[in-house]
Amino acid sequence: MKYNLISRLSIRIFQIKQHLRRLKILYPVGLCLLGVHYPVFSEEPIKPIPETVEVDFEKVELGKRLFNDTLLSKDNTVSCASCHNLATGGDDDRPVSVGIDGKEGPINAPTVFNSGLNFKQFWDGRASTLADQVDGPIQNEVEMGSIWPEIVAKLYKNDFYSKEFKKIYPQEGISRNTVRDAIAEFEKTLITPNSPFDLWLRGSKNAINTQQKRGYELFKSYGCTSCHQGTNVGGNMFQVFGVLNSYFLERGNITEADMGRYNITGNPSDKHAFKVPSLRMAAHTAPYFHDGSAKTLREAVDVMFKFQLGREAPDQDKDDIVEFIKSLAGTYTAVTK
């Protein structure tokens, strides 16, 4: 009885909406052919890290032990954890890594935290999966300098491993494949959910402070999110370092590692292209960049403005962005049964 114009109209609008929804099957096609930009999406470009992952707990335990075991290196001095210290942000806090015999590597060690959320592994993306990645450090002469047959033999001689592998991998036992699998399974658990920023995204209004909120708005409006977005705030594409100004011309002394993805594809347009790093743990992973050249987060942000955005910004804005980046770091909780 009490229907007025508005409520009647609302009903009709709703009906039209229902009908129009059918059309959504076609709209990406239509829009795309037309080149229409469709600015209705209101979602945030950054998504929270999931709070849990599904893993096989026994493999995780085994992988954790392997990750921390120096047995995997040629002279039993270096473990994965030597360069990826979980207590200090999942990296080694050095510009470039130091492996067996104190040898220096060519490149900065990224954090292992959240690396399972990256679309590819390594700065140049040469490994597609965590399991493939393991071959890298193990066989690298300056990192762990081992070869698989040696490792498999060493693990067989160890009572703990020979028992555990038999139990967890009854078909295959100890092999390159199963060692990689166990380590990768452990690495999957190295996530850092519930950062202040994620809590804020999930609706807790005071999880980050005003400066960080401002920093986030600036991070978006300056266009950092063009490259650093998604769950990992990075880690889902390659970009040339120095899109708008030549970083390497200014820094000089170009090394092979500086060539980035070009080393893998040989494609000239990939010169100096790197996987855009995740900023999730950036609060704890100084120094920054593949060459470890920026000592502080603030320096890194300066460089980004100059070379990736090709512009300057007031100090205050940069400080706010740094504070925002700090709010991205969550906490790692060891996964147990």
Partner: peptide
């Protein structure tokens, strides 16, 4: 459809959004 309307009063925005969609399909 009317039955469900009580808790789903459409906003102007949603109508406008959808109008855009229809537009593009028509073009398409």
């Amino acid at each position: 459809v009317g039955a469900e309307v009580g808790d789903t009063i459409a906003t102007d925005k949603s109508v406008i959004e959808n109008v855009d969609i229809v537009d593009s399909v028509t073009h398409y």
